[in-house]
Simulated assay, not measured.
Amino acid sequence: MNRESNSYTFIFAIGMVVIVAFLLAFASTSLKDRQGENVEKEKMQNILKTIGVDVERDAAKEKYGDYIKEELSLNADGSVDENSEAFEIDLNRELKLPVEEQHFPIYIAEVEGEKFYIVPLRGAGLWNAIWGYVSLKEDLNTIEGVNFDHAGETPGLGAEITTSWFQAQFEGKKIFDENDELVGVTVAKGSGTKGDNAVDAISGATITGDGVTAMIKERLSHYLPYFKKERTQ
């Protein structure tokens, strides 16, 4: 075949596309197990971070069992669903279901004899999804720590929710007000000095901050039946 012809160029291009597609598919299939394992380790790492256990991703799986004593999947009424694995719950999928059909994972940890409850979070930022975890002390009111991440917030603005300075503000904050009503934690300008239920916002990232505020309150609201049972024991 004439290598200078259009037909040769066309056939060559098709051949290259097929070869590259095959190699990409092969690589994706070959690495699937490793990718899944890395996602699992990162999830464990982020859960542990909320209780002050800061470990490298590769060490997270080994340390996870030392601190996480229970993984519970809750129904909307606060009861435990024994047929659902908490760690395997995908909040992105759950949020598409009616509330009464959703499962609500919660992790119970113990650090130096102190008990903590860790709740996964998921909401909406400015451009895409935001998510994370919040750990509560045994009173189920005081925040021990948080960990946030995002899919596409603006660097230097909304993406700052992943920084330690922003997340550190939540430590010691309360999710209930003085009337024992769930209010979560409000992210707003100048709120850092306004009491137990607020933190300072990120300058220029109002919508992302509002997303964090809404995410915390909305997710925690579904745990109230369980919290009520635990607090009365």
Rank of each mutant, 00 (worst) to 15 (best):
residue 215 M to Y: 03
residue 115 K to W: 07
residue 55 V to D: 05
residue 133 Y to T: 03
residue 122 R to A: 10
residue 168 A to V: 06
residue 167 Q to H: 09
residue 98 P to S: 11
residue 38 N to P: 03
residue 125 G to D: 03
residue 16 M to S: 14
residue 112 E to D: 13
residue 142 T to Y: 06
residue 74 L to T: 04
residue 221 S to P: 06
residue 139 D to V: 07
residue 65 G to Q: 12
residue 109 A to P: 04
residue 211 G to D: 04
residue 152 G to M: 08
residue 62 E to W: 07
residue 189 K to R: 12
residue 175 I to K: 01
residue 142 T to Q: 06
residue 222 H to S: 11
residue 33 D to E: 15
residue 220 L to P: 03
residue 196 D to K: 08
residue 185 V to F: 00
residue 78 G to D: 06
residue 20 V to I: 15
residue 137 K to S: 12
residue 48 L to Y: 01
residue 55 V to C: 09
residue 92 N to M: 07
residue 156 G to D: 13
residue 133 Y to S: 00
residue 95 L to V: 13
residue 106 I to T: 01
residue 2 N to I: 10
residue 91 L to K: 11
residue 89 I to T: 04
residue 11 I to M: 10
residue 209 G to H: 01
residue 68 I to Q: 05
residue 152 G to D: 13
residue 202 I to R: 00
residue 77 D to M: 07
residue 136 L to F: 15
residue 71 E to P: 05
residue 57 R to K: 15
residue 190 G to L: 02
residue 26 F to M: 10
residue 207 I to S: 08
residue 12 F to D: 13
residue 80 V to T: 14
residue 211 G to A: 06
residue 173 K to F: 08
residue 233 Q to K: 12
residue 116 F to G: 00
residue 157 L to E: 07
residue 199 V to H: 00
residue 153 E to S: 05
residue 88 E to K: 14
residue 126 L to A: 10
residue 69 K to Q: 15
residue 157 L to W: 08
residue 115 K to I: 08
residue 81 D to W: 10
residue 80 V to W: 05
residue 176 F to M: 11
residue 113 G to A: 05
residue 207 I to E: 11
residue 117 Y to S: 04
residue 151 A to Y: 14
residue 192 G to D: 08
residue 214 A to R: 12
residue 227 F to C: 02
residue 220 L to H: 03
residue 37 E to K: 13
residue 223 Y to C: 01
residue 171 E to Y: 01
residue 173 K to S: 06
residue 42 E to H: 07
residue 115 K to C: 00
residue 64 Y to I: 08
residue 141 N to R: 03
residue 26 F to V: 15
residue 41 K to R: 12
residue 214 A to F: 02
residue 78 G to R: 04
residue 14 I to R: 06
residue 225 P to V: 09
residue 222 H to M: 14
residue 87 F to M: 11
residue 19 I to Q: 09
residue 208 T to M: 07
residue 138 E to M: 03
residue 116 F to T: 02
residue 71 E to W: 03
